[in-house]
Amino acid sequence: MSAVTQRRRRLSGWIFVSPWLLGLLILFIYPFIASFLWSFTEYDLLTSPRYVGTDHYQRIAQEIASGEGFGKALVNTVYFAVVSVPLSIFMAISLAVMLNWKVRGQAIFRTLFYLPSMVPIVASSILWLWLLDPRDGMVNGFLGFFYEVPPLWFQGIQEAISLDTPLQFGSKDGLAMMSLWGVGNFMLIYLAAIGDIEPSLYHAAELDGAGVWQKFRHITLPMLSPIIFFNLILGIIQSVQAFTQVYIVSEGTGQPAESSLMISLQLFLSAFRDLEMGYASAIAWVLFALLGLATWGLFRTSKNWVHYRGVRM
């Protein structure tokens, strides 16, 4: 090959990726720098920014300490993630295991389990808003048999996982319930991964007299661990980014009493309702740092429980 064609091929590499490079520049690098700089200013987009040093970061630290504003949103988001992520991992794996059973109509069941995940989030928010209505909702119609005072769901500030109000479902529990309904994507990933497990592993275990549970515990689960890890990280990111459903069920405010105010909504409202771009940019950066920290922490612990092809890493 001549030197000219070599060079042309090298150059064409850059040409092919140029749309993305342009995107990188204007959709990532510029916003990245701008939001970092703005986080040190008081800025409302209407008048020019004013340098205020680390005021916003101090305010965030204060709010984390007092549990208000960003602190409140952080607590809400953590609660939501802690409730919804493990439950949806458990749910997705259970469903995948069930779908892997060799029974008639497997394909139909797979479709039925997956279909809720195709419901657009706006539609499913409207649907669950109605199903979880404290008075007219079908869910409470059913729970009425067990509860003297049925839970308030999206209208309530209660938290089901707490000492004060155990099993009194509030707004965040309603949101968690919604996310459980849409676990289809991960269910399919687990299903594919279970299909990839060598049958010989199970045969060997059976020869050793392993039961159903032991096979699951010692073969299936370790083989799925890389995906569980992936699911865990993605689940956390998704909880932090949950916006549409939160906006709709809380009428764009995080009500009642900010009990469903998640970080992404709080950031959005701080910026575009309260006109505090500086503070909102600072939140974005703190959030970025916290997410990075959480991911790094998970990677550290993952060495102890994530198995890649049966080998501990």
């Binding site: 404290p134 008075r135 005072v149 308030l152 309530g156 500030i157 009194q168």
Partner: peptide
């Protein structure tokens, strides 16, 4: 508190 909250919320429906 719970009575108050429930009663109030039920107004909405």
């Amino acid at each position: 508190a719970h009575n108050v909250a429930t009663f109030r919320q039920n107004d909405q429906s």
